[in-house]
Amino acid sequence: MLLSKAESLAHRRPAAYDVIVFGGGPAGAAVALALARRGHSVAIFRKRSDVAPPIGETVPPGIARPLAQLGLWDQFRAAGHAEAPGTVVIWGGECPYENDFVFNPYGPSWHLDRAHFDTMLIAAAEAAGAEISDCRVNGCVRQPGAGWNVLIDDNHGGRIVAARWLVDATGRAAWLARRLFAKRYRMDRLVAFVKFARCEVVDESRTLIEACPVGWWYAATLPQRRVVKALFTDADLLPRSASDRVRLWRTTLAATSLISKTSPDPDGASAIHIVAAYSGRLMPCAGRDWLAVGDAAQVYDPLTGQGIAKALTSALRGAEAISASLLQDRFALNDFVSTAAREYEDYAIDQVACYRREQRWSRHEFWKRRNLS
């Protein structure tokens, strides 16, 4: 892509980095942290809006592995995230069943304070030497021979910044990859109706999941006594009007036997937010001097609870591939791409098997789509 202001700024000598990361979420911060610790010069360019507190999430016990690799496990455990000793599920039948993490070698799962979690990662990246810039990226162009020039607007005005490699960590938007003609392939049209509230008394620390005719419910108690509930269904199955959507929320919640009783809808709850939750992958997810990590590369059904853990793992693999490529290892990028492809194919098989375990509403459109042979 041609830089619209490049000619007028060409007389300036651009700042130069080994790697520029677009996006300051968990994947972007983690890949920058890992690269900085390997001795590479790194900058994170993030939108100013990225600084706003994100919504909370539940992460599995295995989150300990990538956090330990990043040297952040002890800091994470001391940060006040809420332990979730297990999951209670109604799926495939009327009776709830429990998945207890007592014997899991990594311990419990966790309900995150996402604002604190993201701040921890970005602070660690900065402490390791990564430069953080809240700016607007106006374009990027590959230079003859090797490297990139990136045009940004920040507190210093418009300027050009050079890099040998670029990383797309812009989440589902995949801002860089889409401009390099990569395409997102989606498996479904899943969205989430998300609602938050405060709860004075916390009676349930486990994660709750319950299937229903139009999709499935998730509920959890986050740190600071915040309760999150989400109804997952397909985007095209939602009513068009806001009032009908609120009615769908209330009637569907009232019909649940686990979510409504264990985590009632309190007064003073937030408005309902609609959030994309579809599964999909970017193809290609890398080129000779760029790659995508986290949700920019692959997005997973929230039912798996693996989104952030996989984002961190993806970031670590991405950092390893870039570092090796900078040292002239021509096979490193192929390994990154093939590993990502195998991981997503395995996930897709597991996702289909999980949804097919629920047959009670096989004639309803949401489930019919997921039970096709």
Rank of each mutant, 00 (worst) to 15 (best):
K5G: 10
L33K: 03
L35A: 02
V42L: 07
A43T: 01
I44A: 00
I44G: 00
V51Y: 03
P54S: 03
G56S: 09
F76L: 13
A82Q: 03
E83M: 15
W91V: 08
G93H: 09
C95T: 12
E98L: 14
N99C: 12
F103I: 03
F103N: 05
N104H: 11
L112V: 06
I122H: 02
A124P: 07
S133E: 00
R136N: 11
N138K: 14
V141N: 09
V141K: 12
Q143F: 08
H156E: 13
R159Y: 15
R164S: 10
R179F: 02
R179N: 10
R179V: 05
K183G: 07
Y185V: 12
L190Q: 14
D203T: 08
A211M: 04
Y218S: 06
A219K: 01
L222M: 14
V227E: 06
F232R: 07
D236T: 02
P239L: 12
T251F: 05
A254Q: 08
K261H: 10
T262I: 14
V275Q: 06
G280S: 02
R281H: 15
A286H: 02
L291C: 08
A297E: 01
G305W: 08
Q306M: 07
K310P: 00
K310T: 07
A311M: 11
S323V: 04
F331N: 08
L333C: 05
L333V: 13
T339L: 14
E343T: 06
D350V: 09
Q351M: 14
Q359E: 15
R363F: 14
H364L: 11
